[in-house]
Amino acid sequence: MKTYKQTFAELKRAALIPFFVIGDPDFDTSLEIIKAAIDAGADILELGIPFSDPIADGPVIQKADIRALAAGMDIEKAKDFIAKIKSYRDIPIGLLMYYNLIFQYGIEKFFADFAKAGVNSVLVADLSIDDVDEIYTPARKAGLDTVFMVTPNTETDRAKKIASKCTGFIYTVSLLGVTGGRETLSDMVKPLIAKLKSITDVPVCVGFGVSKPQHAVELAKAGADGVIIGSRIVKIIEDNLSDKKSIPAKVSEFLADVKKQLG
């Protein structure tokens, strides 16, 4: 199974990391969309298991969660979904999700089962480094890498502590706020990347508000090891629900453009 380490070592440029909600807008379409994203050059996938109350997400991803849940996605099907992607291509997959789903599944069992399904890491949006002990050992025992978030208001000492617990990459939140497309990059992000680069060798991947190919290029120039694009892509799904078959090609076109500009 391909690791983050291998992926970052092989890449001569920033990794392209699209985010999708698993099962949005339905199981089959979602699978086709993600296959298209892989073919368009995604280096890593960031996938969300839909939750009824996603407090870290803006309206676009909230709606995607609702669509996926309404179409019947649940945690068991998500596991099958991931296995299907892995059998299509051996690409690193990071989950980004909310703690209650893991807690109900059973923490140890969750990490073990999803490691088996082919996941590389699980980022829990509402679990901070203060509670790292609840998931770190189960994750490592299952052979998973760990990923935690750093935000622009994270103090340096705390950022160091977070970095020391990240074996996969640091999920660097570009702004103060929730997920969602933005016209311009936050002016907080470049100093944050510089700070993280000065305190750790762990790869720094940037997400939240990354919406345009130009944003990706700017972040890569600023030293980001990966760019995570979520709401901008999920919006393509939202805007084309009346013609679901057209979505994979449209997502592919957007990602190919980002990829090309990343060089």
């Binding site: 901070s128 208001n153 994270t154 706020g177």
Partner: peptide
């Protein structure tokens, strides 16, 4: 955080990192 905010197994502060400083 100085205290854990626990009441037995309950409580805590399960929030996104961005809210921790506040």
């Amino acid at each position: 955080m100085k205290y854990s905010g626990r009441f037995g197994q309950f409580g805590g502060f399960y929030v996104p990192e961005v809210l921790i400083p506040a």
